[in-house]
Design a protein around this nucleic acid. Structure first.
Lengths: 130, 130
DNA sequence: TTCCTTGCAAATCGTTTGCATAATG
DNA sequence: CATTATGCAAACGATTTGCAAGGAA
């Protein structure tokens, strides 16, 4: 179970840090391949899963059926544009109180929630007007 | 594009109405097959997709990678047990105000949100104690 | 007769896994 | 040397699709 160093894992992690658009595994693969031509898709998947499991990155499921990855593991929310599909970070106040609201009439224990917002992003909205 | 009657579609819709546990396409298939032995998986998928598109049912993506379906299209929230995977309806006050909170520092237009809660359901919690 | 819907099987897509080899500690 | 990680390709599970035949309007 002990983790050993791997160049591939470092490159993947570094690449993810440079992006704020929450790329998919395939996008990671394509890009990392430019600096590391021999890397395989399987290795990318294995490392993304590993990094997500140890909490160094975050796996995002925003409803399009494809996993996205985020190097920012701090709690924050995402917006998904129904027009272009882009995934954007939202700067917003905490809404953690919704857990209390949801817990009120529930006999189990709620430990977390997943929320993402959708609509039209600023860029797509501008294009609609022109 | 005009919709024509189909026995299969009716049976699928009726079955979904009898269940409040948000079955997957495969569960729908297996169950409908008992009353309609010749129905094919493809037909089930086609009709679930069609019904979701015209708003007669709801497609649920709760993060397990498998689509669930819900005959209740009224706005409500779901709880997912991390122990047994069951998807349960929550009776809770509206949290629609989170859209306003999210919109505050955002330049696009937010039209909706998806939220689901997770934790340990009542049943699993009881089993843990015993 | 038009054309929507079906059953079936093959295809697709994202993701995982087995295996022999390479790299790390 | 023990063990973890890799590349490759095959396998996987959920879902979609092409096609010829069946059923509704």
């Amino acid at each position: 179970m002990a983790l050993k160093y791997s160049r591939q894992r470092e490159v993947i992690k570094e690449f993810l840090k440079t992006r704020k658009d929450h790329p998919t595994a395939d996008v990671v693969y394509t890009n990392v391949r430019e600096q590391y031509p021999n890397i395989s898709l399987g290795t990318v998947y294995r490392n993304l899963t590993l990094l997500a499991d140890i909490g160094e990155i975050q796996r995002l499921r925003v409803g399009d059926g494809i996993d996205h990855f985020d190097a920012d593991v701090s709690p924050h929310y995402h917006f998904v544009c129904t027009e272009c599909g882009s995934v954007i970070d939202l700067e917003m106040d905490s809404i953690d109180n919704i857990i209390d609201i949801a817990s009120k009439n529930f006999d189990g224990m709620i430990t977390g929630h997943v929320t993402h917002f959708y609509g039209i992003c600023g860029d797509c909205h501008k294009k609609t007007l022109s």
